[in-house]
Design a protein around this nucleic acid. Sequence first.
DNA 1: AACCGGCTCAACCGCCGGTCG
DNA 2: TCGACCGGCGGTTGAGCCGGT
Length: 210
Amino acid sequence: MEKKPCKSEEVEVRKGPWTMEEDLILVNYIANHGEGVWNSLAKAAGLKRTGKSCRLRWLNYLRPDVRRGNITPEEQFLIMELHAKWGNRWSKIAKHLPGRTDNEIKNYWRTRIQKHMNKPAEICYSNQSDCELLLDQQASTSQLPCNGTNADFMEGSYSPLSSFSHCNNNDAFYGQQQQQQQMIVESSSNHEDNYWNMEDIWSMQILNDD
DNA sequence: AACCGGCTCAACCGCCGGTCG
DNA sequence: TCGACCGGCGGTTGAGCCGGT
């Protein structure tokens, strides 16, 4: 009874960046068994990771409906509007941006929006015109990383769905995957052998799924 | 070409509330 | 009722990338 429970099993807990093998194991396991108790899942899948780490990796990166990069002007407007309303309630804000994670929104806010907060026009953005003012400022400083152009947005011709219309697939699940893969391919075409994208992960998962 | 500083974002940390035995 | 466990959340960190000098 002197032995502390579980301590001996905590010896080997991996931290740091996830490897492709770990991603594959996690995706494969969830595809076959679904999400469950994360600590148990980590052990059952044979991952030397904490349940928290697995959950975070799945929710922020591996989940098939995660959209990555290319925050659209409308999303930016929504983020600013909801942040003005709720403050740093990132998960609450994320619920109103399908496919976006709280972590991504949080990062986006801190790196792309917060640094401009000293500018007077950005202090109050409770309506569309305020947002347009901000977007106009950002356009002049080339700070807007998005698919749709500012001109599209200003002229009202831009639609948040239009950038993804090529993915209008009956199978929403794989449509989102394709959309995600395309974005990743477009944004990181110079990745070398040490990198991989969700196409790699999911194609391997599909192969292993039978 | 090398160095440096700023930027980005994946991942971790610590805390809190809910649930269950 | 209480303690252990778990998930969720917001804040923070650090490695890698990139552009400027």
